[in-house]
Nucleic acid binder design. Structure first.
Lengths: 97, 97, 97, 97
DNA sequence: ACTCCAATACTTTAGC
DNA sequence: GCTAAAGTATTGGAGT
């Protein structure tokens, strides 16, 4: 299917298809694409670290599991702290933020 | 149904842990688990159909796209496509007709 | 974009666009759609059980958590059994399948 | 490299738990965690851009579709669309031209 | 090439 | 009703 209408469908602000609206949309798309590019680069860096570690004799799967477990531990800790804060709050040991 | 108290605010009605309440809870859990099991089986069947189709030379990704498009309510689809086309137009991905 | 070619692109078997190939594709699509319909029905049934339980005074969130935990327990048990089988196998207590 | 044994089959080289090996492992884990932290930050930034765009009246789903389509390698996209059109034709979702 | 698993994206659901 | 979170489905990549 092709774009057949020139009139604005109301999905974006600035109803008439002004140059400004175009620029705004373009800006959004470019920002996202830029960020996704960065994200991809970092993901690639991570892959590289694993590859390098592997060539140094480490078991990648084991490494991934360590990372995963540490992440879970951190989450649990965070959760615990939240609970502790809740209790402290209830006991008046913290000011309500 | 069978809850006997009207003002119970706890997790389950009928606070004293009567055998009846236990049975009711057990029934709920079992019904849900049974249904989730069925759901899982069907999901697995779907996977099988795709796998079989693949082995018959079909492109699974393309098949999924067909299913997805057919699933969409026609009106909604049209609406989204209009928006997408509007954006594409603004980005020069389509020529203005 | 529109379909512009009548010739077969080789993604499916039976190169010439025979009625048979059409029927096969249609069959695949219909089977999948049928299964997805069933899956949807079951998901809806699950929702209904939760809703009914709620109206009987049960806390839906708590119920969901029970289900979740039982699922995790089952998975752990499964995992343990796998390990045990591995050991049994190593000890010659099981025949290699 | 640093492994001192040639026949080590374990997870890490340098079996005796030397301080050096510990440091190396620690370094790997920290590098990965650092990179994952950065990745998470960027993912969060992307989420923010979408949220901001939404509050400016844009349809997030449509934006995602635009991004997705632009991301796809043009050739691959063309190929998939050709396949999809072939299937649609067989299903009568497109008129044969 | 194919399977398996991790990562991402999407959908649905719960809480405000 | 909308925002936030959980669960689910799909995709991509690593290993065999």
């Amino acid at each position: 299917m092709t774009a057949t209408t020139g009139h604005n469908t109301g999905v974006a602000p600035d109803e008439p298809a002004t140059k400004f609206a175009k620029d705004q949309l373009r800006s959004i798309v470019e920002r996202i694409e830029r960020l996704e590019e960065e994200k991809k680069t970092i993901a690639s860096d991570i892959t590289d670290v694993y590859a390098e570690s592997k060539s140094n004799g480490y078991d990648v799967k084991a490494l991934r599991q360590i990372i995963r477990e540490r992440k879970q531990d951190a989450a649990k800790l965070q959760e615990l702290e939240t609970i502790v804060d809740t209790y402290k709050l209830a006991l008046g040991m913290l000011v309500d933020s």
